[in-house]
Design a protein around this nucleic acid. Sequence first.
DNA 1: CCTCGAATAT
DNA 2: AATATTCGAG
Length: 344
Amino acid sequence: MIKKLSNMDYKQDRERCGQYIKALEEERRKIHVFQRELPLCLDLVTQAIEACKRELPETATKNMYGQSECSEQTTREFRPVLEQFLTIKESLTSNEEEEFDDEHGNHDTDNDSEDKNMKSDWLKSVQLWNQPDPLLPKEEGSQEKMVDTVMKENESMKREFMANGGERRKREAEKDGGRKQRRCWSSQLHRRFLNALQHLGGPHVATPKQIRELMKVDGLTNDEVKSHLQKYRLHTRRPSQTVANNGNTQTQHLVVVKGLWLPQSDYSTGRITGGATASGTTATTGIYGAMAAPPLPRWPSHSSFRPSIIVEEKGSGSHSEEMVVRCSSPAMSSSTRNHYVKNI
DNA sequence: CCTCGAATAT
DNA sequence: AATATTCGAG
């Protein structure tokens, strides 16, 4: 009896696995166009396919694929495979840095190999520029949702791509009211921003122009960066005051990594400032203060600002090492700049 | 005249 | 809240 049941289960699983593979392959085909931009996605999907196939070696395919409508949704329902994903999740996550670095390398080196640049360039523009509109990828869910997220990102990519058939956003005065088009800081853009910040030594030392140059994003203006930087600094600085009230007396250990402030582990974990300041949970959203618990692995509320901080280690030895400063007291702000970043 | 940062404006 | 624009200082 039991045997029968398990047998059926097995069969079902196999069936689903087959469908899943189909869907994955379909997905991969679509993504392929963005191979350069989303190498990881491609890789991810590929790995998934392989893993899946491995799971059912013999009767790999032989059932009704008719309903291939299950592309991303399948992900959630399919346990076995998901587990595999979880396994590789880590490595992929860390890979992201590499990807970014690579990108940078390319840009920094100012490669002008036409062909290579042409395509990737405008594609990049599309990615970076395009207003993420409704479906901006919420960025990697810091945890297991990674896979899902990635998939979704693909989706949005595709849509973005189709949406504007490769058109570029046009700015310029255009004799209208004169007010510029709002620049939307997609997560990608923001990433570059953060990366630039790192290279420059932190939000307080980095200057808009430098940042813009490092970002190497076509069309990005100084003012835009300046504005973004201003916001970043505001969010970044000690969100001290505010919060307090409740039993929030837990001293938050903030950590400075190459000039970037982050909460001990996961950003967002609320920046409660211990002792000193204390009054009401102010406007700074409950997002900051309130929760000091596990939920909320995100930055200032929704959008962009993530702690995608990456501690880089250039050729070891060379200059500053990781430099991690613990600090539980606010103070140290703008005026204190330069000092803490320089060498240490 | 240019860049920056803070203050405002939208 | 997120951007844009303005303003005063180097």
